[in-house]
């Protein structure tokens, strides 16, 4: 049994093997592995006795369940209306310039993935970004450089 298989088994033991446990199991896996590979989906299907096509169908429906390899830190920039009004584009340019990646891409060292997302619910403190589980608000291009530098310095 490889590490993915045993992780899936543990998650299924914890959440159950019913259909309603599918999302918690997928979410648990994404939390650990950052994304859901085809292999993981097939293994979840096997472990929970659900057709693999349905696991795929469910997983690809949700934008927070990555099905492409993602970096250690997933940066989600809010692109909804107030953040757009308050300079989300300049922020995005600053991140792209610093990490040398476009939206939807991951840095070669597998550290950062840059994504856009819909409303994060921080409209009064726009623009907002989410890095993994950490929210940053009223972010300026200068501030984002500082924030990212902080992440870069972590566990080198």
């Amino acid at each position: 049994m490889d590490s993915i298989q045993s992780l899936i088994k543990d998650l299924a033991d914890q959440h159950g093997r019913n259909r309603e446990s599918l999302l918690p199991v997928i979410q648990g896996l994404v939390k650990r592995e950052k994304y859901l590979s085809e292999y993981s989906m097939v293994e979840i299907a096997r472990e929970m006795d659900i057709p693999a096509a349905e696991v795929f169908g469910t997983a690809t429906f949700y934008s927070f369940l990555e099905t492409k390899p993602a970096g250690k830190y997933i940066i989600r920039v809010c692109k909804t209306i107030t953040c757009s009004m308050k300079g989300k584009n300049q922020l995005l340019f600053a991140i792209q310039d610093m990490l040398k990646i476009n939206v939807g891409e991951t840095t070669p060292d597998k550290r950062f993935t840059l994504l856009e997302t819909n409303c994060l619910g921080w409209c009064h403190k726009a623009p907002a970004i989410l890095i993994n589980d950490e929210v940053y608000t009223e972010v300026t291009p200068e501030k984002i450089r500082e924030i990212l530098t902080g992440y870069m310095k972590e566990n080198i």
């Binding site: 909804t80 209306i81 107030t82 819909n118 409303c119 619910g121 921080w122 409209c123 009064h124």
Partner: peptide
């Protein structure tokens, strides 16, 4: 599951 752009009272 509050998702409306511009709403954040539930949060």
């Amino acid at each position: 599951d509050e998702g409306d752009p511009g709403a954040f009272m539930d949060r």
